[in-house]
């Protein structure tokens, strides 16, 4: 039990992941979907940072008397991932704006109806 609780970071990761995915699935609002996606990505950031941690280690900066350091690489990688995430969010939001201009709504159901009508029209 304690072992499972000891991995609480992972539980948080999984919780965030599920929340993100659930948001994407449950909502028809495009902006909320983007937010869900962001949460989903954030869970991964946490996952990486967590796995880089070493018990009793310090930040990977040379300090006298410290033998163990956390693995710096995951954190570094996550910097890239954050950039990617931001870019993605930017593109997604830009698209949402364009969709709003084109369809007059950002609700997926309504957009779908409009597209359906367009398809029938040819």
């Amino acid at each position: 039990m304690s072992e499972a609780l000891g991995l609480y970071n992972y539980w948080i990761v999984i919780f965030l992941m599920m929340t993100g995915l659930y948001l994407v699935i449950s909502t028809g609002n495009l902006v909320r979907k983007v937010v869900g996606l962001n949460i989903f990505q954030a869970s991964v950031l946490l996952l990486y940072v967590t796995m880089g941690r070493v018990d009793g280690a310090t930040a990977p900066i040379f300090v006298e008397g410290r033998e163990t350091y956390t693995d710096p690489l995951p954190s570094v990688l996550m910097l890239t991932a954050i950039v990617v995430g931001v870019a993605t969010t930017a593109v997604a939001l830009a698209l949402t704006v364009r969709i709003n201009e084109a369809y007059g709504t950002i609700e997926e159901d309504e957009i779908n109806e409009q597209e359906h009508a367009q398809e029938l029209a040819g």
Partner: peptide, 9 residues
């Protein structure tokens, strides 16, 4: 054309 929500599901 599938809806995003369904496909993510």
């Amino acid at each position: 054309t599938a809806q995003t929500r369904n496909t993510v599901l």
